[in-house]
Structure formats: C-alpha cells, structure tokens
Design a protein around this nucleic acid. Structure first.
Lengths: 213, 213, 213, 213
DNA sequence: TATGAATGAGCGTTCATTCAT
DNA sequence: CATGAATGAACGCTCATTCAT
C-alpha cells in the first residue's frame, strides 16, 4: 500500500530503475515469461526488494503498459507540431534499429494489444489511450486539412483519422516483421497514402471506385 | 520423435482436434498462460495423450502460428479474385464480432508478432509468411493497376504493397482496440485510402507534398 | 475442484495418506510452521502431487480440524455407552503417553481453539462441534441422573453439562502441561468431582456455599 | 547481546511498548502469522529498532509467554484472598467480552499450550508456571478446607487441586468456544462443582460411584 | 491407444534479520 | 537512538512433461 505511494526521491529512483529493468525483460521475454528474478537481476537488486516499490508483478506490467501508452500518445501529440509525419516514421525505424531504449517498443505494443483482450484493466487503459489518440489525431487533421483548403465534416475527419490510426499501428507490426526495412521504401509507401489522406477531396471520382466493384 | 510425423488418418484427426482446442485456449488465455491441462480438457482427451501427437507445448504453439500465418496468406490470396477488399474487411469485422472461429484471430496475430521478436523459429516463419504475402500482394497490385491504366515500376509496386500491408495489419490492431467499430466508419476510412493506392498516379502533384515539407 | 471430489479408491487412499502425514507434521510443528514440503516428505510423495488431492494447504488444515472435531465428538458419544468416564480419561492419558496416533491430539485441539478465534470457517466448525457435544452430553446426563433418582430441569442439565465440558477440555490442557501425570492422581481428582456432578442434589446445603460468601 | 539486559528506564519502557504491541498482534494473528513489521507498526516504531531490545522474534514470543504465565499465576494467587472464585470467573468472562486488554487472553493461552509441546524452552516455562500454580492452589485449598472443618491429606489436596486446575483451564477453552456464554449458566455450572470440591468429604458414599460401574 | 498419477523445477511472494546512515 | 532499505532463504503453488498401467 505505502509501497506504491512512497514519494521520496529515493523511492522514485528505485521505481524508475525497476521499471526500466522490467521493460528490458518484458521486451526480451514477454510479460509472462519474464520472471521477477530476472527483473531483479536486471535492476541490480534482490527480488524481495522490488515488493517494497510495487505491490506485485502485475502492478509492474500495468505501470509499463501505462508508460508505453503514454509515450505513444506523446508521439502523436508531437505530430501536431510537425506535419512531416512521414519523416517521423522513417526516423522511428532508424532509432529502433539502433536499439534506442526510449522509443516505444513495437513488440511490447503488440503484446499489450493481445493482453487487452483478456485483462479488462489493460483493455480499459488501452481503450482510453486509443480514444485520446483518436481525438488528438482528429484535431490535427481538422487543422491541416483546413489549411490545405479542404472542408471536411465530422464523419470525414473520423474516417481519415481511423485510416491514419490503422496506418500507424500497422507500422508497429511492420517494425516487428521487418525491422531492417529500407527507409527509402518506407518513405515511398507513406508518400503513396498520406497526401490523399491529408488533402484530397474524398468526393473525387477515384474515391468512389471501391464502392463500384 | 515420430510423433510429429505420424501420418495415419487417425493421427491427422487427433492433431487437428488438439490444434483447434489449443487455438481456443491461446485466444482466451495467451500462449504462456494457457496450460496443457486446459488444452487437453478442451480437446476432450488426457494431457499425456497430446504428447503422442506433439513433441511439446512449444510445438503446438508453432503449429498454431504456422496455421494462422497460412490462413492469413490464404485471405490475401483470395483478395486477388475479388477486388473489393474494403467489403472484405467490413465482413471480417462482422464475423469477428459474431465470434466466428474460422476467422484469423487478431489477438493471436498480435501475440505471434510479439513472439516473433523473441523466438528465431517463429521469427523465420513470420518473415517467410510476410515475404509470401508481399509477393502475392505485389502480383495482385500489378494486375489491378495495369487494368486501371496505371503503369507502375517495381519500386512503385513495392511501395504500394507495403502501404497495403501496413493497412491490413493496422486493421488487426483496430479489431483489438475497438471490436465494435462502426462498419460504415470503417468503410469510409477504407474509401479514403484505397482508391488512390490502387489507381492514382504517384507522380501527381499531391503525392509530392510530404516530400516538400 | 475435481481434486476434492475425486472418489476413486486410489484417490481416497492418497487423501488419507496425506491427512495422516499432515496430522503428524501439524502435531510436531503446528499448522503454520509445517511446510507443504515436510508434509509431502512425510507422505512419501512430491509436494506438487498433494495439490491433486487438496486445493490448498488450508484445505488440509481444515480437513484435519474437521477430523479431530469428529473424533472428539465420537469419543463423547461413546461415553453414553459406558458410564465410567473416569476410567476413560485415565485410559486416554495412557494411550497418549504411548504415542497412539489414533487418539485425539491435545496440542492440536488447543491450536484449533486458538485458530477458531481468527478464522471464521474454523470458528464455525468448532462452534458446531461444540453444540453437538453439548447436546450429546446433555442427553446422556439426563439419562444417567434420572437413573440415579435425580430430577433435573433443563437449566440444571445445561449447567452440569457445561461443567463437564470444562472438565474435559481442561484435561486436554492438562495432557499438554503434564503428559506424565500419575494415573492414580488423575483418578482421584475425577473421583472428587464427577460423583456429585452426576448424582447429588443441587439443592443440597453444600451447593449453596459459593452463593453465600 | 546486551540488548536483552539493558536496564535503563527508557529501555524498560521500550520493551514494554514492544510487548504490548506484540501481544495485540499475537492475539489477533497468532505467533507465527504475526509479522515483525506488524508488531513494529503497532508499537509505533521501526522494525529494526525492535532488535535493539529483543534478540529475535522468538525472544518476544518467549517474553509474552512468560508474561502471560506470570499474569495467570497472579490471578491464582489472588484467589487466596477472595474465596468466591465463582464470581471471579463470571467477572473474567465479562471483562473478556468487553475486550479488556489486561485480562489473560484465552486464545493466547491455548496457543502457548500448543507451542509448549514443541519448544522445550516454552515447555519448561509452562511446566514451571504450572507447578507454581499447583502449589499455590494446594496451599489455598488446605486453608479453605481446614476452615470448613475438612481434614484432607496431601493426596486429597493434590487431587482436588488437579480437579480445580482442569476446571480453570477448561474455562479458557470455553471462553474461546463460546465467548458470549450466559453468565447465569456459568455461575450455575460452577455452583454444581465447586462446593463439593471445596468442602465435602471425599469418603462420602457418592464419591465411590464411579468405582462401581 | 489412452489415461492420469507423479515428478521436479521454477514461479511470485513474504518476512525475519542486518546494517549503513 | 532510530530508521528503513536491503537481503536471502524459505514459502505455497503451478505446470510441462514422463511413464506405468
């Protein structure tokens, strides 16, 4: 009880140390297969000590999940300040390949998604994060499309936001399936979808093709 | 040893029964949390008997993974026969919500992706499946774009294929995050991306926007 | 679940084996200090196997408690068939000193009493056993006193039953405090209380002494 | 080493504080289940500090046990000054039900008895306390029976003393089994045994009944 | 072929105890 | 004198796997 609410600087540092170690273990082994002993070893402390700072292994998993979802939301928020999202994704792949620990880990994101279908608490956290992401993306889309002289109603914004979210999440899976993806190819792929999504008129002739099989 | 290579009809049936049971357990509990006992119970047999047909739990996981990847590949192959992929995805969501057991399970797909980063064997299987999917998609893209009067070089095909794969995988994550997604909204989102991807000229003015921030 | 309800002969034997081993460990170490490993060793099996027959250590403790309380109740029931309860108690001490495993263990009885104040389930089991014992003792008292020409109302029966129960329970504590108690001394002590309790008129002059300090 | 022998006033107060806290925890949780952390919290100090005043948790248990046995002995000594022991017991039940912390706790007494069969040190302490109690009771019995004109030899004194001890200890178990016992019923039960024990001639006709089944 | 009893290693967790501060 | 961070050895329990029947 006091464990999770301790707020001394020391406690905060220890909690951070544990979370960093846990994240490394979770990335390497998965939530379930990572043992408290391995986390303790990675954190350079005894297993028992972890319980002074976290109630249970599950609490650590949840903290990691919340941190990852928060980081992901931050990334989306930062898109608003920099409209060149294609370059953002290319950069993301580069940092991931270099093993940058601060990057949101795609394997973890996938596992979180899988767990969200089983653990209601995780599911709620993910749903909440997702709604926030959708709102942020929608607001950004409204601004950028208006700036480009495109008038979209709410439904149009939601549809394009959804498409963008699918694209983003799909890139996480891509990072897992092919971490050495050629940056130029990725850039080309993004160039093939993003422009229309951000600017073209959905009422143009092309857009009706799928509706006329 | 010979267990996994037994080829009598009986053995094949048993293996299928076990795999069906295992898949249900894996979807419900995850690879790690599903116990051999629960799989045996779901398969209506004793735990010991499973070892006559599979060397280990890991072998079952691998078989399930291969089956899921094969099913996914089949789905992609079927796209070639029916160009209305948007409707395919809407249908997919509908079947998923109705609990159709034959549909490729998104939660499993995510977990497979996560495991692929840890287990080289799974990683290889996934990479192989992914390359095959890319090839199939590429061939289909080449045909459909040519039919629409669009001449794309190899790089263009690869780029659009990659974009499509991201979109497909992103829909799996979407199914997990929001299984009750409004079909109309999904259709609109797909209508906003697919047409250009399948027909528009990548050299059009719009497509160069992201390259000129 | 099925563990506690398995009813094959084999399962019954195993359960009995575990209970016997557990009882020996509980007598030697106490409920809490006895480890599952020690019980397993005493039962000649692995610790994990115990869980096929009992849901938890607590379930074993409860089973032992219920068995002890049942045995104790049986002992009281047998008193009714043999009015020489003094000799019964002397015999009890003799068997206890000889280490007879079938005798209700006094140390265990004391620990059960202590636990009954903490665990509601144990408390309920003990209260139930105690009420049954009081009823049996009361019925026996009614018969024996009537046979001796003593007419006692309900209150009188209850009072003497209560006194008897205190005496019995006190003998358990005595067995713990002084297991080598001289049988002759015990017999004399019982001879000093039992006769009046079972036959004398409570309205006799002597009986009012404590009421007139 | 010197920890347990420190004799400054401060040290004495601290030790008392720890013992009071420990007793409350032991009553609530039992010797084994009470943790040093909970004792420290109840005592309003850190867990580490306790080790300045007691060598180990076991030393605390032993101190508590000795204190309880000493208190119990005091109670018996006080009987000598007030012959109305029946009222004493009724009072005891009343105080127990009101949660008076100064009363010897019956649950603790039972647990001490159980531990006495396992730990030789506790067994010795209990045996010593028991012998002292028997001696005090014997002396008191000698006086009270003589005052009532009853000449008892040593064997007679010992026998009645033993009977009394059983009765007392049985009341501890009674307090545990039925803490809400009706005071009137208890008084009646005591009235049914005590008078004969304290005054009647053991050679009277009734006393030979159990010897002639 | 099929069972399910049995094992043993490992899991998450607790806690008496120590010690640097 | 006093703290509470830290340890390490247990603990109760689970489960993939084996094997006699």
């Amino acid at each position: 009880m006091t464990a999770t609410t301790a707020t001394t600087p020391r406690a905060g540092q220890q909690r951070a140390r544990i979370l960093d170690a846990a994240q490394a273990c979770f990335v390497r082994d998965g939530f379930h297969a990572a043992s408290m002993a391995s986390i303790a070893e990675a954190a350079g402390m005894s297993a028992g000590l972890i319980y002074r700072y976290f109630e249970s292994k599950n609490a650590i998993i949840l903290a990691i999940i919340e941190r990852q979802l928060r980081d992901k939301l931050d990334n989306i928020a930062k898109l608003a300040e920099d409209p060149d999202i294609a370059r953002k994704f290319v950069d993301f792949f580069g940092r991931l390949r270099r093993g940058d620990p601060d990057v949101v880990n795609p394997a973890l994101l996938l596992e979180i998604g899988a767990q969200a279908t089983r653990d209601p608490q995780i599911g709620a956290a993910m749903a909440h994060s997702d709604r926030a992401a959708a709102a942020a993306l929608g607001e950004w889309l409204r601004q950028i499309t208006r700036a480009r002289g495109l008038a979209l109603d709410d439904a149009g914004i939601r549809a394009r936001g959804l498409a963008l979210q699918c694209l983003f999440d799909g890139l996480a899976m891509r990072a897992v399936k092919d971490p050495d993806l050629d940056p130029a190819l990725l850039a080309a792929a993004l160039a093939a979808v993003l422009p229309q999504l951000l600017a073209s008129d959905p009422a143009s002739p092309h857009s009706r093709e799928t509706a006329e099989p």
